[in-house]
């Protein structure tokens, strides 16, 4: 299980990085946290002949809000989102709930959010969150930068719109409004495996009516899924418990396209999607109510 031979460079700037990636004679891989890349290399599934280590590149470790969005640089580790208030508002709550499902502390201390987007594993938590929230990725090569919305980015298991020469420098997530409740729920067989299914859900409620919902499905297809049919079933409806159940069924039957895995056939996965979407929405609704109560409390 030893990695094959490769060359290694540790550039100091984005410019040097994209120049290295642009070398036409070589298959290059970017290493940031390395928690997925080295797994793949130990298993001989990836055999780059150049590894470009971006850990010493200045300016990639930024995490902060500007405008209405959160910008996450390529070197921001998963662990950064574990702290309360690392990210403001409901988005922070969602991130905090999502991140605790990613592996465990030593992996979260090294691995990065952007790295997860680059790896694009169908069971990645971040990929589904990014897709559901309309995140926007910034990719650079030696010719310049381009923005790719998450909906155009994910193309299959470990397949994305990123070109081999490109570095993902950052990703932007729109902040969530205060009248939005959130929940992230994951189901897996033990603490140590990929999600069988997980769901990221937001629910925006104004005057008792659902005005918005974003639902991301983890491992419900060969790529992350945004559960548009489920979202549609909620819009304009008044808050009610049976809604969530219906949305769950819609997600399972219309949005999910599950792939069979050991010990989880597509039928079971659809069931898990239905159940988890229902539960996530209920929890998001409760979160929304407690936020509203908190605001009222604050006003008094």
């Amino acid at each position: 299980m030893k990695p094959p031979v490769f060359d290694y460079v540790a550039p100091r700037s984005v410019r040097e990085t994209v120049d290295a990636l642009g070398d036409p004679g070589r298959t290059a891989a970017v290493i940031a946290g390395g928690q997925s890349l080295l797994l793949e290399m130990h298993l001989w599934r990836r055999r780059p002949d150049l590894v470009v280590d971006v850990n010493r590149v200045a300016g990639l470790d930024g995490l902060g809000v500007d405008g209405g969005s959160l910008r996450v640089g390529a070197l921001v580790r998963h662990a950064a989102f574990e702290a309360p208030q690392a990210v403001p508002g409901p988005l922070g709550t969602l991130f905090q709930q999502a991140v605790t499902n990613i592996a465990h502390p030593p992996i979260r201390a090294r691995g990065t959010l952007v790295g997860s987007l680059a790896w694009a594993h169908p069971a990645s938590e971040w990929c589904a969150v990014a897709l559901a929230l309309d995140a926007d990725l910034t990719l650079r090569d030696s010719d310049g930068a381009r923005q790719v919305p998450a909906r155009d980015y994910f193309q299959g298991p470990h397949r994305t719109a990123r070109r081999p020469r490109e570095l993902i420098t950052s990703v932007r997530f729109p902040l969530l409004s205060d009248d939005t409740g959130v929940a992230f729920i994951e189901h897996r067989r033990t603490h140590f495996c990929f999600a069988t299914v997980a769901v990221s859900a937001t629910l925006t409620v104004r005057d008792g009516v659902i005005t918005g919902s974003r639902i991301g499905l983890v491992n419900a297809s060969d790529r992350p899924v945004r559960a548009l049919a489920a979202e549609q079933s909620l819009l304009g409806a008044e808050i009610a418990d049976d809604l969530y159940h219906r949305a769950g069924r819609a997600a399972a039957e219309q949005d999910a396209a599950p792939v069979a895995e050991p010990f989880a056939d597509p039928g079971y996965k659809r069931q898990a999607v239905a159940v988890l979407v229902g539960r996530a929405l209920r929890r998001a609704a409760a979160d929304q109510r407690s936020r509203a109560a908190g605001r009222t409390e604050g006003l008094r």
């Binding site: 298993l43 033990t190 140590f192 495996c193 990929f194 050991p262």
Partner: peptide, 11 residues
């Protein structure tokens, strides 16, 4: 395929 992520020991 993924080693000990597929054969699950109790944690």
């Amino acid at each position: 395929t993924d080693g000990l992520l597929d054969y699950l020991l109790p944690t």
